[in-house]
Design a protein around this nucleic acid. Structure first.
Length: 594
RNA sequence: GGUCCAGUAGCUCAGUUGGAUAGAGCAACAGCCUUCUAAGCUGUCGGUCGCAGGUUCGAAUCCUGCCUGGAUCACCA
């Protein structure tokens, strides 16, 4: 990279001019602000004590040194202590020429060959996917793609929470109020039907509790004594004891849910390499805990329950096994982490899970470390914020959730209405038109979600539907379509892009665009390191915006100088490639026409 | 109460390891289609970067205190 080169020579300059030894990597090079002339800026303020000179003089000297010794430096200017360095046009033109035809520009090889295992989605089988899950799924998918692009092997896993009291509630409700009904008979998605059962259970239970409270019980008592809850608990016991009838219903209802989830995943473009089921793994952690107990790392209380003492780490004591010997959530996670380690020998274990579980993952890592699992340090929790509605957090029980399928369908319809109004469907078959609406609505949704910093909470207002203009996915898709159309037109006129080095003068915007293309690889690397698709999203938006401004300002094909036209076609082509590549990392496809 | 995270334009969000005059989009207003796609472009309007101190050549960014919002501290998952 050119920045490294500048760092190296500035370090040399400091040594030559002021006998000051500064490590190359400590030299700070920043992008020059747009309002000043130059590409990169070096700030001399930190070095003035060594130089013993005024900032301007010091910057002038270093600038002079660079101009003499680095051939890609064309000129420089000094404003106060800021040394603005202008990189020669031929450097940027050379970069462009080198990469116009490279496939997968920016792809890297990294890592030690061991896979990165990333868990995401991990739904419960008692309700359909909502907007919160959408954020999880898109994040997980995108981070996986970014890691692949950055050169890692990646295994995407999903741990389905398919057992427990919640699914028993749905099953019980089905038996009581939905008997005989199926997704086919009701003509709805299976996950929706099961979700309806769950909601019904909750409603009926509330009624019971209310009448118990009216009869003079406290709310806590009422909730514990509700006959419905007791029945559900009994059902869970029956499930654990392998009751054939309960297992049959459980299998059937989960099957409905999986069919429904599959459709949602497919529409979102999400898939997994391996699916774990909690019903297979929920007993796994017990052996690890019992082993820790034997080694004296864990301890047993008088009632027989098993605990980890985390007070050394500033945390509390944590329960690992109940007095009756059954396991809790964290026990299972201990087990699944071990399983994943045994299955894949990963270099990293990533978990895409909401930030309400930050504490849980701290505890998980610490306990595994206490138990002597060295690989516990490779566990990383990709923590993301909630999607909030204007009135606050989404609550399934209060019906304030934004259903994933409904949202996607609604956006599809908006995209269709808009496209028709703009006359974008001319000459398209129905199937092509459908695909276009789908691409655009998915692009809008995905970009909307992925462009915000994962760790922050974000707001979704259902009243104001997600935009298709401005800082959006469709804007970037549109830019790509524009370029494709331009390239096609050029080909019709027999004008091709070129790998030849362009020697003519460059437009200011052209330099800006090439500079953006130049840093693409670095952006992906940063995104891979911080697990943040938002970096990619905001980068590709900036690129598209810059290109659009250029496009509007300059008529590329009408230009008289044919070399300049070729150069601009190269620029357009590489821009389109990078847009396509970056959008792919976000799980967004780009149409050639829209 | 303890711990963690967040607070930037009316709204939704960017803001690189501390750097120059804090940026986009939406909304509002005014322009631009006989020219490669107007889902676009140009311009106007919009800021006490939660508040108060501190660190330094320089702070939205780092430190301390406070305010506000959220999460969490379950024998729920």
């Amino acid at each position: 990279m050119i920045q490294d080169k500048l760092q190296k020579h500035i370090a040399e300059a400091l040594l030559a001019l002021y006998s000051t030894n500064v490590k190359q990597e400590n030299i700070i090079i920043q992008q020059t602000r747009k309002d000043f002339e130059g590409d990169y800026t070096f700030n001399v303020f930190p070095y003035l004590k060594f130089a013993g000179e005024k900032p301007e003089a010091c910057a002038e000297k270093i600038g002079g040194y660079l101009l003499k010794n680095v051939d890609s430096v064309a000129s420089f200017n000094v404003i106060k202590g800021f040394l603005n360095i202008v990189i020669a046009d031929h450097f940027w033109a050379g970069f462009l020429a080198d990469h116009v035809n490279s496939k997968n520009f920016g792809n890297q090889v990294a890592g030690d060959g061991k896979p990165v295992v990333i868990e995401f989605s991990s739904p419960n089988t008692n309700k359909p996917l909502h907007l919160g899950h959408v954020r999880n799924n898109l994040l997980g998918w995108s981070v996986a793609e970014i890691l692949k692009f950055a050169g890692h092997k990646v295994v995407k896993v999903n741990l389905v929470n398919d057992r427990g009291i919640h699914i028993c509630k749905s099953m019980l409700a089905w038996k009581k109020w939905f008997e005989g009904k199926s997704p086919e008979s009701e003509n709805i998605k299976g996950d929706k039907l099961v979700g309806d059962c769950y909601v019904r259970f909750d409603r009926e239970m509330k009624k019971e509790v209310e009448s118990l409270v009216a009869a003079g019980k406290s709310k806590e008592e009422a909730e514990k004594q509700s006959p419905l809850i007791s029945e559900a608990r009994q059902m869970l016991k029956d499930w654990e004891n392998g009751d054939a009838e309960v297992l049959r219903l459980w299998t059937e209802m989960n099957g409905w849910v999986y069919n429904g989830f599959d459709k949602t995943y497919e529409r979102m473009g999400i898939d997994f390499d391996k699916i774990y089921y909690e019903s297979d793994t929920f007993l796994l952690g017990k052996a690890i805990v019992e082993d820790g107990l034997r080694q004296g790392i864990l301890f047993k209380k008088d009632d027989g329950s098993v605990w980890a003492d985390l007070s050394d780490e500033g945390l509390d004591e944590k329960l690992l096994l109940r007095a009756d010997g059954t396991s809790v959530y964290i026990t299972q996670d201990l087990g699944t982490a071990q399983l994943r380690h045994d299955d894949f020998d990963p270099s990293k274990l990533l978990y895409v899970v909401g930030n309400e579980q930050n504490y849980h993952f701290d505890v998980l890592r610490i306990i595994l470390q206490k138990l002597g699992r060295k690989w516990a340090r490779d566990i990383f929790h990709i923590s993301y914020g909630m999607v909030e509605l204007p009135e606050g957090k989404m609550k399934s029980r209060e019906g304030t959730v934004v259903d994933a399928d409904d949202l996607m369908e609604q956006m599809h319809q908006t995209a269709e209405a808009m496209a028709r109004e703009l006359g974008k469907v001319e000459g398209l078959t129905d199937a092509e038109a459908y695909d276009l609406f789908e691409m655009i609505s998915q692009g809008a949704l995905k970009f909307f979600i992925l462009r915000v910093d994962p760790k922050k909470n974000m707001l979704f207002n259902p009243e104001e539907s997600i935009d298709f203009n401005g800082h959006t996915g469709p804007f970037i898709q549109y830019t790509h379509a524009r370029i494709q159309s331009l390239l096609k037109k050029a080909a019709e006129k027999n004008i091709e892009h070129t790998e030849q080095l362009y020697k003519g003068e460059m437009h200011l915007k052209e330099r800006e665009i090439i500079k953006l293309l130049y840093v693409y690889q670095g952006v992906v690397a940063d995104a891979a390191e911080s697990y943040s698709p938002a970096l990619i999203a905001n980068y590709v938006y900036e690129l598209a915006k810059e290109y659009n401004q250029f496009y509007q300002e300059v008529n590329i094909l009408k230009e008289q100088n044919i070399e300049k036209v070729r150069f601009r076609l190269s620029l357009s082509r590489l821009t389109a490639n990078v847009i396509r590549s970056a959008m792919h990392l976000l799980g967004i496809s780009v149409p050639d026409k829209m």
